[in-house]
Design a binder for these strands. Structure first.
Lengths: 342, 342
DNA sequence: ATTTATAATGCAAGCGCTTACATTGATTGT
DNA sequence: ACAATCAATGTAAGCGCTTGCATTATAAAT
């Protein structure tokens, strides 16, 4: 197997020789600079920059059993939902010189398990996962390896695991209530796939629960499930609207779906919100760019990312008792929801 | 320094002992399974799964000087532009069991350099970078470390480096031409920041060049530069539209900017495309969700990602001569560009 | 059977770093 | 001036894996 690396890559030893110290001292300069005298440190730093030395990550990980790496596994990058959270997390972590490794599972539990193994084998010091819903084997593996982790994007007061999120059930209930406040009674829902996705599941339940408070149920007998892309949202919309009775409002499981639905509705020659109201969930940038702008629920992406960074940095030291954070969500009223025509 | 890892993590040696073979054989089972007899292999695999063994990444990297990792540094995740390309790249790579490490630079050359060092020190086998425009020190470092790399999102026939992209200059010219074909003469441009960003620079040049072919120049004396967010796009729009004379068409450096501009224009009570035409660049999903849908240039995100994966996997073996790929772009006609009112 | 070629396995030397422990040098109190 | 203390540095033993080379088992050829 050919190695492409030049064989002149400087090592700790080269630095040590040039600075006339032992490798231990160089190592200390890198890891706890306070413990070495200033004169020595300067000499070492000079040697490092002369040589263009970069520590070998593998060697460091092997020797210290730490990697300065935190992993996160998200369903997909191909959707802005998680991007902001990750961006915020990355910023917070790189201040502490920690690298964030991002992997994607494509909403598949098997692939998620694979990625968990991959990241653990890469020695991530801790891990962030989206949602609670996954096979027990995943939790067992994590525990057998003693890898601290935190669940994001959902919150449960009774969670045995650290989590940072918001109440999907409640937030979905809020927006459903708002829709009903506008006089809608014929309400449909287009949701993400619920299998292995507690957020999607809880949003549906939140909506159904709110409706039943008014003696209503979802049209079409329940939510239409759809993948999270514009096209799939549009397709789901077409399917829904070809049914016997059309809803006056569609609640969407997220904003991307809502954008797809709006496109579909428009293609049928209908106007939003005059002919039909549409609401989303997440309040990604897209929501405000639509025309009409989307009424939706703002979820605390950046806050979750920052909090996750903070928690993961200290997770190994913390007691698990106080590692659950629930953020607020907020209704964002824009133009895509209007009173039902009478 | 406390290690949080359980001390029972199984190692290669544990597997070897349990399967009654040497560590060398276990290693071979993992790396070139064909070279070990089936019976032995089965025994080893059994031991591996009994123990729940996962290879230690650091040790492997250290011993083999390979990591099975490819890095990519993009300006930001907080924008769908690169997401699709990365997603495609990730898919192609994980088929080969290669991990993609994604880092972000925030459009800052210094931060990019930092990330390059970080990724190289993590032992990436090769690297993908966006655009050519960066300090020479970065190229020097990469070459001193013999890390193969490929430039994405841009193409230059005379590039000394492997690259996979498209002709930003030409594509921008095409859409400018189209705008002029619709009778527009008062054309403005809102572009991304050009410093250290060759794509933005070339798009501006492409537009200016096309305009000058008709004896025109950009209004406001040149492009308005703006950060790549909806809000910043909207702000740039406001600035532009408060000038003495309003354009009849605005060419935007990318779709996000265009969406921001559309929002701004609408806020001023103007209609797109009746009062003003807007065109974008990239054809991200967002573009088709806008109302009116955005006329823009489709760039080959997924293709670039796939091609990059393929090239990076073979880069160390290839001759650099045939490692330049130029993809086509395509005008996408939608509703945001219309004939100028006479 | 015996030799010869070949496939399968084992042996053991590192890869570049960290860190417990030993050593040396500087500082303080008496 | 000398012991006691503490800070700074050095010594060297691994961390868990890969891999060149040596060794042994197996197959093929005589």
């Amino acid at each position: 197997m050919p190695k492409h690396n030049a064989d002149n890559v400087p090592t700790l030893e080269d630095v040590a020789r040039r600075a006339n110290v032992s490798t231990a001292t160089v190592s200390r300069c890198l890891n706890k600079p306070d413990s070495v005298r200033e004169g020595t440190r300067l000499r070492v730093e000079q040697a490092i920059s002369d040589l263009g030395y970069t520590p070998n990550f593998g060697a460091r990980a092997l020797a210290s059993n730490r990697t300065g790496t935190i992993g996160i596994i998200i369903p997909t990058m191909d959707n802005a939902i998680f991007a902001q959270g990750i961006q915020a997390m990355e910023e917070a972590l790189s201040e502490q010189n920690i690298t964030l490794l991002v992997a994607t599972s494509g909403y598949s539990p098997e692939r998620e398990m694979l990625k968990i193994r991959a990241l653990v084998s890469r020695g991530v010091d801790s891990l962030a996962l989206i949602g609670f819903d996954r096979p027990d084997t995943a939790y067992k593996f994590l525990s057998s390896r003693s890898v601290p982790f935190v669940i994001l994007w959902n919150y449960s007061a009774s969670s045995p695991y650290p989590c940072i999120g918001f109440d999907n059930h409640r937030a979905a209930g809020m927006i459903a209530q708002r829709v009903m406040d506008f006089g809608h009674r014929d309400i449909a829902m287009i949701a993400g796939r619920r299998a292995g996705n507690d957020r999607a599941t809880q949003r549906v339940k939140g909506v159904e629960n709110a409706l039943s408070g008014q003696g209503l149920t979802l049209m079409a007998g329940g939510p239409i499930e759809s993948g999270y892309s514009l096209d799939e949202g549009e397709a789901a919309c077409m399917k829904l609207m070809s049914g016997p009775k059309r809803p006056t409002a569609i609640i969407c499981g997220n904003d991307v779906l809502a954008a797809g639905v709006m496109r579909g509705v428009r293609q049928m020659g209908l106007e939003v919100p005059e002919d039909i109201s549409i609401v989303g969930f997440d309040d990604i940038d897209l929501a405000s760019a639509l025309n009409p702008a989307l009424t939706t629920v703002r979820t605390p992406h950046r806050l979750m990312g920052q909090a996750a960074a903070k928690m993961l940095l200290s997770l190994s030291e913390l007691d698990k008792a106080d590692t659950r954070l629930c953020f607020d969500t907020k209704l964002v009223n824009r133009g895509s929801l209007a009173s039902v025509k009478t």
